[in-house]
Design a binder for these strands. Structure first.
Length: 276
DNA sequence: ATGGGTACCTGTCTGC
DNA sequence: TGCAGACAGGTACCCA
């Protein structure tokens, strides 16, 4: 579900409110993608720090005086959302993790349970380090340039859409925004990554950054169940050019939007506006 | 190393 | 109404 705009929207909606809170309890529901990796009693009494984001992961620091840092690495998977509430309802069927603090409860709701909440002694150690290790550049990092994208794409020969989705060149674009960025850049998603010219890579880098920024400004996309930590839905899906619009007329040329499958996922594109 | 496929799990929608 | 099948925002892991 959540791609970078949704994860960042989520982070911004609870980070300042939970920063400085004391953990009073932890409640676990059904298993998520990985075990928590720590005895929950080790978390109780800790102080929550400022949540940060790397790709689609959130890192929530939980310090214990001077002796121990550590924190939780969280991922929303396909169907996860985090809610922060001072007076949370009783945990429902899909509520699988509660971090109860003196200011409110941070709750992960995730029907499909592809999400994760994993303890690490620091962001640079253990499971967190392992999961973050292979990630590509942040799209808003000045180092993410057309030249960087061009050189990275040159090294492989998969379809450019799959190269974007892989997340080891640039992070943050999932299925919706990979489709939308390629549409904005006028590039056919089936184009082999090593065939993308320098100028087109430049255009694509700009499109990735702008698409994600625009979605972030709209609070992300809500297709079915995404909500930020206040329960607000995103608005970007209403402006999508191609995603989820199979058969509808392309806004630029009127050609019906086409749907194909790449890597077992739907790709939406305009056969006229997007060239190989 | 690269590319391709599978696996994880639940809900919703479509068509017969 | 029931039921099978397709599909859904992600990504680690296994195999060739």
């Amino acid at each position: 579900m959540p791609e970078l705009p949704e994860v960042e929207t989520t982070r911004q909606s609870f980070a300042d409110r939970i920063d400085g809170a004391q953990v009073t309890a932890v409640r676990l529901g059904k298993p998520l993608r990985w075990p928590l990796g720590v005895d929950p009693t080790q978390i109780v009494g800790r102080t929550v720090g400022q949540a940060t984001r790397r790709g689609k992961y959130l890192w929530l620091p939980l310090s214990q005086g001077l002796e121990s840092d550590g924190g939780l690495l969280m991922h929303l998977g396909m169907s996860g959302s985090l809610n922060f509430n001072a007076a949370p309802a009783a945990a429902g069927t899909h509520d699988h993790f509660d971090l109860v603090t003196n200011r409110g409860t941070l709750r992960l709701t995730d029907p499909r349970r592809f999400g994760a909440v994993v303890w690490s002694d620091s962001r640079e150690e253990g499971m967190a380090a392992k999961l973050l290790a292979g990630l590509g550049l942040e799209p808003f990092d000045p180092a993410f340039t057309g030249e960087h994208l061009y050189r990275s794409l040159k090294r492989r020969r998969v379809a450019v859409k799959l190269a974007l989705l892989a997340g080891d060149i640039v992070v943050g674009a999932g299925n919706i925004y990979a489709c939308e960025a390629l549409y904005a850049a006028g590039i056919d998603p089936r184009t082999r990554s090593d065939k993308i010219s320098r100028p087109r890579a430049e255009k694509l880098a700009v499109a990735v950054r702008d698409t994600l920024a625009r979605a972030l400004a709209l609070g992300g996309s809500t297709l079915r169940d995404f909500r930020d930590a206040h329960g607000m839905a995103g608005q970007f899906q209403l402006q999508a050019g191609v995603y989820g619009r199979e058969g509808e007329a392309c806004g630029a040329c009127g050609t019906p939007v086409r749907r194909i499958v790449q890597g077992q996922r739907s790709t939406f594109f305009c056969t006229r506006c997007q060239k190989r």
